[in-house]
Each structure stands twice: as structure tokens, then as C-alpha cells.
């Protein structure tokens, strides 16, 4: 547990959070390398299946970062993404995975500091929660097999 380094997948909208990550870099702001960024053309491109599969494949935490309310390049993709995240959170609870491991954030392209802070906060939160129950079960199964 002490050496636990969470794997966090961040689906970032090209028009806001992904550019904010760029901005964080330009501002020489550091954020944990635990966060693996996947660029998407809009936060609503992220399907429920992408979120669930991320956990199945070993993510300890997942988040979707979309534009501020009313700022979506495609009108309301960010709101659709938020509804989808809320839906998947309920599914995760049904699966025995803490719903706090999944989150939706909103930011603009200029919010480099907020991007770095979100990455830090999420990493800390997942560190506190510990490895995902799926990774724990996989490790146990592997241990038994060995």
C-alpha cells in the first residue's frame, strides 16, 4: 500500500482541458505522472464503455474533463458527458467499485493551474482510496495461481 502509485486515466476535451494541460506545461507547472491523458474531440465522445473498460483494464481512477458550462464547442457535449459520468458512477457502485474513483471536471483552455491542481487532487484522492478492487482481485488471483 505504501508504494501504491495509482494509474489515473484522464479523458480531456481538445478544446479545453487538453489545451489547459498544454498551458500548465507552458507555465512550468508540475502535476503527477500518474495521470495519463487521452485527448478527445469533445468530452461527450467519451462513452460509458470507455469509462468501464478503463477500470477493467487496470485504472484506479478515471476522470473526464470538459468545457465550462455553456462553453462547449458543440453546444452541450459537456453536459451530456456529465450525465454519462453520473450514470456510470451508479454502475460502478453496482459492480462494487467506489464511485469516487470516477469524476467529471470542467475547465477552460486558459486554466492551466486548475488542470494541474485537478490532477494533483485526483491523484491524492485515489491514493487515499487505495488500489481499485479490480486490481486487488487480479493481484489475489495471480498470487493464488503462483
Amino acid at each position: 500500500m505504501e508504494n501504491f502509485e495509482p494509474v489515473i486515466v484522464a479523458f480531456c476535451c481538445h478544446y479545453c482541458a487538453y489545451t489547459a494541460a498544454d498551458m500548465a506545461g507552458t507555465q512550468r507547472l508540475t502535476y503527477p505522472s500518474n495521470v495519463k491523458i487521452i485527448r478527445v474531440p469533445c468530452s461527450c465522445k467519451v462513452d460509458a464503455l470507455h469509462l468501464v473498460k478503463a477500470f477493467e483494464k487496470g485504472a484506479d481512477g478515471v476522470y473526464v474533463a470538459g468545457c465550462l458550462k455553456g462553453d462547449c464547442h458543440f453546444n452541450n457535449g459537456n453536459d451530456r458527458a456529465a450525465s454519462r459520468v453520473a450514470y456510470v458512477k451508479k454502475y460502478l457502485e453496482e459492480l462494487g467499485i467506489e464511485s469516487e474513483r470516477l469524476a467529471m471536471f470542467r475547465m477552460s483552455a486558459g486554466m492551466g493551474f486548475q488542470f494541474a491542481q485537478t490532477a494533483k487532487d485526483m491523484t491524492e484522492k485515489i491514493r487515499e482510496l487505495g488500489p481499485s478492487p479490480i486490481n486487488v482481485a487480479k493481484a489475489q488471483l495471480k498470487g493464488e495461481a503462483a
Binding site: 462513452d47 460509458a48 464503455l49 468501464v52 473498460k53 477500470f55 477493467e56 454502475y91 453496482e94 459492480l95 462494487g96 467499485i97 478492487p133 479490480i134 482481485a137 487480479k138 489475489q140 488471483l141
Partner: peptide, 21 residues
């Protein structure tokens, strides 16, 4: 097709936690 994917993934994870494959 999408719901099939979601359920397959969910079942896989839920059963894994019960030590079943």
C-alpha cells in the same frame, strides 16, 4: 452491442471480485 459490451465488462469485474473466472 454497446450494452452487451458494458455488461460483459461489468460481469467480468464483478465476478473477478468474487474470485470467479
Amino acid at each position: 452491442r454497446k450494452e452487451v459490451g458494458l455488461l460483459a465488462s461489468g460481469l467480468h469485474m464483478a465476478l473477478l471480485q468474487q474470485g470467479k473466472s
